[in-house]
Design a protein around this nucleic acid. Structure first.
Length: 551
RNA sequence: GCCCCCGUAGCUCAGUGGAUAGAGCAAUGGAUUCCUAAUCCAUGUGCCGCAUGUUCGAUUCAUGCCGGGGGCACCA
């Protein structure tokens, strides 16, 4: 529809120029917006105001010229108004919106999909929590954002791969091994001094018990070997748990990528050698430094410490190099906001690789405040007391959790109230949207009882009630919302659009009867609500929230 | 000290240059012989943190300030 209007507008401008009504000048392409206020029409353009200078005419005068010029070939346009300082407001014939209905019903599950990405290979890496403990709510938000974003990108024609980076190397894994080993010794009746920086959670004790079952001679095998065993055993067990929790949350990855494998394959060494050769890595004070400052980082960063050990950054450079080597044209990392100091470093590495800055994006997801009935829940990783993702999903369900995590921009902090998430009321936006789906299923059943079944989209445009046109316009906007969500990497836009559509539907439902006396009208209305249901389903699918047929 | 994010209605937040800035919650009143009342309808509220600049036009962009949050490592 939008393209159609732009076409009409462009033709009108050309005609006006040819007829000499407008001076020849270098005019910009007209752009159309959708006014917030209905009195301002279905579409509007500021073209006359933008061109006032180039044409050396008053905006209102230009607008009137265009208005008349369009009048010669109005197409779907019912009327045009010149308003305010020179806006052109277009009012589309109500019947014209019927084409949206046809499109939704014909495309079905594909409605909204596009080829915006043109097959670009994109990788979305998210959660990537260290396998040293269970996932908590914060990870849940990262998972919801990452997975839904991947869905958005896939739906807009990108070749998407989801990846989880396993930090299975380095000190925290050793600390994990030590923590489990010490708990095992305790279980074996030995007195131990449990250090503060070890992992405190009760799950460590459970793992210690399991490790001893698996390896009965654990306490006699020598400390180093025992710790190494515990480290591997625990990391594997925890990772299996993480995998399960994510699956229950509707998330599955195409690739689980091990940090250790970068060392084993020599990729870290190769990457370091690669950058040394290019002069990006130099030696100073006994350590090796990566020259990140010239790419906008605060200072250069150490990659190999004076003691010969590589830093986390070293493997990260190798990791991101590896991602590009695997052919990804665009890399999106979803991190907790606490990693924000890291962004410039990776940007520097990306640019040192000779890649465009745009090929890498770090999306920072801010914290989640967990509440219960308005009261904050105390959470502290140090003491080992935190609410896990599993606990939240078990309590409120996957649907509510995934939806609520996407009710905010990823940048802004999110209050997550467990009571609210379970509530079946007005306050809970998940049910509000799902209820639309269920209601329409109910209408469909009722219609079928009356012998009313949609076999093909209605040919006659009978849907001219205000509420009907609003619904059709909202449906028409869905593909644009998907595209902007993809372009801006903001999956929460889907959530907001579904809420808008749901509100329009509920209002319509309360005012008009779908299945009624007039057969043709009932048919058209049923087709309309089925189209609404389709878009609700498509949108919820992106969010990985189910569409229940009854509630 | 430096870097990033935020500041919009009583509360929680949408709104990536447009017209009279929106929604939900909370408050009050109303709607069900009829497709699910987990719904709808009606009734208010705003120096869009402050200041300057860019622009025909700024809540939106730039700069500075004020206030809130997060982050700074030869840790991971």
């Amino acid at each position: 529809m939008k393209k159609e209007i732009i076409g009409i507008l462009r033709e009108a401008i050309d005609r006006a120029c040819q007829q000499g009504l407008l001076p020849q000048a270098d005019y910009p392409e007209p752009s159309l917006e959708e006014p917030k206020i209905e009195q301002h029409g279905d579409f509007a353009t500021n073209w006359a105001m933008v061109c006032a200078k180039a044409a050396r005419m008053a905006p209102a005068k230009i607008a009137r010229i265009i208005q008349e010029s369009v009048g010669d070939r109005p197409g779907v346009i019912e009327k045009i108004e010149v308003a305010g300082p020179g806006f052109l407001n277009f009012f589309v014939r109500r019947e014209a919106w019927n084409s949206v209905l046809v499109e939704v019903l014909e495309k079905g599950a594909d409605f909204g999909r596009s080829n915006l990405g043109a097959g670009q290979k994109v990788q979305v890496e998210f959660v990537s929590a260290n396998p040293t403990g269970p996932l908590h709510v914060g990870h849940g938000r990262g998972a919801a954002v990452g997975d839904s974003l991947a869905n958005v990108l896939a739906a807009t024609g990108h070749a998407v791969q989801r990846e989880y980076y396993i930090n299975d190397s380095g000190r925290q894994i050793r600390t994990l091994g030590l923590s489990v080993y010490l708990r095992a010794k305790e279980l074996g009746g030995m007195a131990v001094d449990f250090p503060q920086d070890a992992y405190q959670g009760d799950y460590i004790k459970d793992l210690a018990g399991q490790a001893m079952q698996k390896q009965p001679g654990l306490l006699e095998m020598g400390e180093d070997k025992a710790i190494a065993f515990c480290a591997h055993f625990a990391a594997d067990a925890i990772l299996a748990g993480i995998r399960k929790d994510l699956e229950d949350f509707g998330v599955s990855y195409e690739c689980w990528f091990s940090e250790q494998s970068l060392y084993d394959s020599g990729a870290v060494e190769d990457a370091l050698a690669f950058f040394k050769e290019k002069g990006q890595i130099y030696q100073k004070d006994g350590a090796f430094w990566f020259a990140t400052e010239k790419y906008g980082d605060e200072k250069d960063r150490v990659v190999v410490r004076a003691n010969g050990l590589t830093t986390y950054f070293a493997s990260d450079i190798a990791y991101h190099k590896n991602k590009f080597d695997r052919g990804f044209e665009r890399i999106i990392d979803i991190w907790g906001a606490d990693h924000h100091g890291y962004v410039n470093r990776i940007f520097a590495a990306v640019q040192a690789l000779g890649r465009q800055k745009e090929s890498f994006t770090a999306l920072l997801v801010t914290l989640v405040n967990l509440l219960r009935g308005g009261q904050p829940l105390a959470m502290s990783t140090r003491s080992g007391e935190f609410v896990t993702l599993k606990e939240v999903v078990d309590e409120v369900g996957k649907d509510a959790a995934r939806f609520l995590f996407l009710t905010r921009h990823h940048d802004s902090p999110l209050d997550f109230d467990l009571e609210l998430a379970k509530e079946k009321s007005n306050d809970n936006p998940v049910f509000y949207v799902q209820y639309v789906y269920a209601r329409i299923c109910s209408i469909e059943k009722k219609a079928a009882q009356e012998g009313l079944i949609i076999v093909s989209p209605p040919e006659k445009a009978l849907l001219t009630e205000v509420e009907e046109v609003r619904l059709l316009k909202s449906l028409a906007r869905y593909p644009q919302v998907l595209e902007s969500a993809a372009r801006l990497l903001e999956p929460h836009r889907i959530t907001f659009h579904l809420l808008e559509l749901a509100a329009l539907f509920h209002a319509y439902y309360n005012k008009h009867r779908v299945v009624g006396e007039e057969k043709e009208l009932s048919y058209a209305r049923l087709a309309l609500v089925l189209a609404v249901r389709q878009v609700i389903k498509n949108g919820l699918g992106i969010l990985c929230v189910s569409s229940p047929e009854s509630m």
